[in-house]
Design a binder for these strands. Structure first.
Lengths: 124, 124
DNA sequence: TGCTATTTGCAATTTAATTGCATTAAATGA
DNA sequence: TCATTTAATGCAATTAAATTGCAAATAGCA
């Protein structure tokens, strides 16, 4: 557990929404943490591999985002089409649906991703 | 409406799941359609702009995919984690949820994306 | 303190997507 | 039909996110 890794982890812990590698990099720079963008990527990869952070990809976005795995219930996101603001949605109407989908498709369902987009209060 | 554009459109029309630009390019090559990958990109862009095709991005995938807009009901997808097979899901349990989400978040909901992943019959 | 294994920074590479520009093909009108 | 305008194409180069190789630096531990 190195200084840089702690900085990455600390920032993820204190942020209420998922961050992209470049966002993490920019914020760490602002905090005067000497870190390379490649190191951000590698730390996120490592933290994901050990199950500490979760990698998500929002609909229509280019980059991956990362959020803490621990202490968070199953949730989804809503994202503003205008300013990009992201908030958690704590509801999930999909648990009951899995059996039906497995029956219809013969797939074995592992997980799902759900995302709403629209306009946040400021951008309406 | 050029030959190449017709080829792109024809392939999208005859495929039951969303295709990526590189998949389209590879298949057109196989059909001996002389086309550049850049042209595939530009045609998809143009077809999207006039509302003929829809651009989607599946969770955890790198590239965009495209599918016909016309004649298709609102639907979602299920994707095999192993072989990448994609199928449509014609159900959507989310319409009723929009009002609740707007109330809770004060966002104005525009649309949503929902995707299941798991293992297809062959890969189980 | 000294040794080993891991992590880091830098440079270079990969892949998806985009852009500039000269050439070619389509489409419209006389 | 042919000429003229307009849009589409191919090639090369570029951009951005992510990854990799490798030497130097750092952490962990005896």
């Amino acid at each position: 557990m190195t200084r840089t890794r702690q900085a990455v982890l600390g920032l993820l812990e204190s942020t209420k929404y998922p961050l992209s590698p470049s966002e993490l990099y920019a914020r760490l720079k602002k905090q005067n943490v000497a870190i390379d963008l490649v190191t951000v990527y590698r730390n996120l990869h490592a933290l994901k591999a050990i199950g500490v952070v979760r990698q998500i990809k929002l609909h229509q976005e280019e980059q991956f985002r990362y959020e803490m795995e621990e202490g968070r219930e199953h949730h989804h996101h809503i994202r503003c089409k205008s300013c990009g603001k992201i908030e958690d949605l704590l509801l999930c109407p999909l648990k009951k649906l899995t059996a039906l989908i497995e029956q219809e498709t013969r797939f074995l369902v592992g997980d799902h991703s759900l995302e709403f987009s629209g306009w946040c209060p400021k951008c309406q």
